[in-house]
Design a protein around this nucleic acid. Structure first.
Length: 422
RNA sequence: CUCGAGAUUCCCUU
């Protein structure tokens, strides 16, 4: 079983989880008894391929085989649940684990903390952070990184910085991932200058920024409109021997589009398309440009680019269609927008909240308020929930049309609990 | 050293 475990693990590592499961089944059928490692390996593989239900079911099978779950079993499943946003269920497993007399370790806590941070309940994460320390489980760099990430995501960059310092005072050395997380978080909280300081401090301490570190920094600078600085750091990146990747290029293309340099962005895309460039564009690369073109009103060029994309064997994704639909409305081609919408559905893409809101906005601009309203309610029945953006869009449109009675009625409906106004 | 955790890029209203 020792050897089979290694094989299963390797199958999972190269993405052939199906093969691993098959091997697991064969092993069992041939009378070899899997140990808890085998179960854990398969569970982990299933979670990584979004087959959480199968993983949870395997836990039952494990119990039936009289194989006791370990802390690793629990953390694997809790991680899977958290990544699906099912943190409450992960907490149930956490309780169950403790009832069975298993002590949570630093990984269990880090998984849960990250889970809470992912659904913007960092306070719960902090609670667990204190809980673990009280129980004598020492947080490590990963634990701190999860919290820093969560805090920045909620705009609490000062708290994040405090925690970062707190960590070093506790004798832990930040690593590249920690630095990158903090730099990204600061940028996203509008603190690019602080981020640059941290970047400088990082280098001063002798840490080598990774490609991801450069990417987050470039993104931060681009979002601030500092495209020239972004390119300056891009140069440094290359000089420093860090290979740009497709994310680097996509980030720079977005930055160029943001300051209306769409043709420059196009040059970057063409560079990637060049045969002697080792970086291949992905769907996002095309999407960046499609967005840029739509934004400056060159919707037909965007459509043309979409065609080129399809020629290269990329069909585009939901985002591509959302942007093209929005573009069509922008140049007042409602029929084209509807046609794209149908095409998108036919291709198996389920319209999301963005799609609906784009259509609502499009209809509003055409003064087709009833159609817009119909879509607004359809979102709910389609399980997308009421959309604040959708309500706001329709409200704004009604006000513009001097249809204040209807606007007030809609506003009242929101206050009555349909959708909390902002 | 047979198993588990952390970082980056695209779309909607004002």
């Amino acid at each position: 079983i020792f050897l089979f475990n290694i094989m299963m693990k390797e199958f999972c590592k190269v993405g052939k989880v199906e093969k691993a499961v098959e091997l697991f089944r064969n092993v069992k059928r041939n009378g070899i008894v899997p140990d808890r490692f085998s179960y854990n390996i398969i569970m982990s593989g299933l979670c990584k391929t979004k087959r959480l239900e199968d993983a949870l079911h395997l836990r039952i099978e494990m119990a039936e085989a009289n194989c006791q779950p370990s802390v690793v079993t629990y953390s694997t499943l809790m991680d899977g649940l958290c990544k699906e946003g099912r943190v409450d269920e992960a907490m149930k497993l956490f309780d169950e684990m403790r009832r069975r007399g298993l002590d949570a370790d630093v990984i269990v806590y880090s998984v849960l903390i990250r889970g809470f941070c992912g659904q913007n309940t960092v306070d719960k994460g902090i609670e667990l952070f204190h809980d673990m320390k009280q129980k004598g489980v020492l947080p490590n760099v990963v634990t701190y990184t999860c919290l820093v990430h969560g805090l920045c995501k909620m705009g609490c960059w000062e708290e994040a910085m405090k925690l970062f310092n707190d960590m070093t005072e506790h004798g832990l050395t930040p690593d590249v991932v920690m630095y990158t997380t903090l730099i990204d978080g600061l940028c996203k909280d509008g603190m690019a200058d602080q981020a640059l300081k941290v970047f400088g401090a990082m280098i001063e301490k002798g840490f080598k920024p990774s490609t991801v570190t450069y990417n987050v920094l470039l993104n931060g600078l681009c979002k601030e409109g500092l495209i020239d600085d972004a390119f300056a750091y891009f140069e440094k990146m290359v000089e420093g021997g860090k290979r740009p990747d497709v994310v680097t290029y996509n980030t720079l293309m977005a930055g160029l589009c943001n300051c209306h340099k769409v043709d420059e962005a196009m040059k970057l895309l063409n560079k990637m398309l060049d045969d002697d460039c080792s970086i291949e564009p992905d769907e996002m690369s095309f999407n960046m440009l499609i967005h840029g073109l739509c934004k400056v009103g060159r919707v037909n060029d965007a459509m043309e680019l979409h065609r080129k994309m399809v020629e290269r064997g990329m069909v585009g994704n939901l985002v591509t269609y959302n942007m093209l639909i929005e573009g069509s409305f922008k140049i007042r081609k409602v029929e084209k927008a509807l046609q794209l919408h149908q095409e998108m559905v036919a291709m198996g893409f389920r319209p999301n909240a963005f799609t609906y809101n784009i259509m609502i906005n499009g209809f509003c601009k055409k003064k087709m308020v009833d159609a817009a309203e119909k879509l607004l309610y359809e979102m709910d029945t389609e399980g997308l929930g009421p959309s604040l953006v959708g309500y706001n869009t329709l409200l704004a449109s009604l006000c513009k049309e001097r249809n204040l009675d209807r606007a007030m009625a809609l506003f009242q409906e929101m206050k009555d609990g349909k959708c909390k106004p902002d």
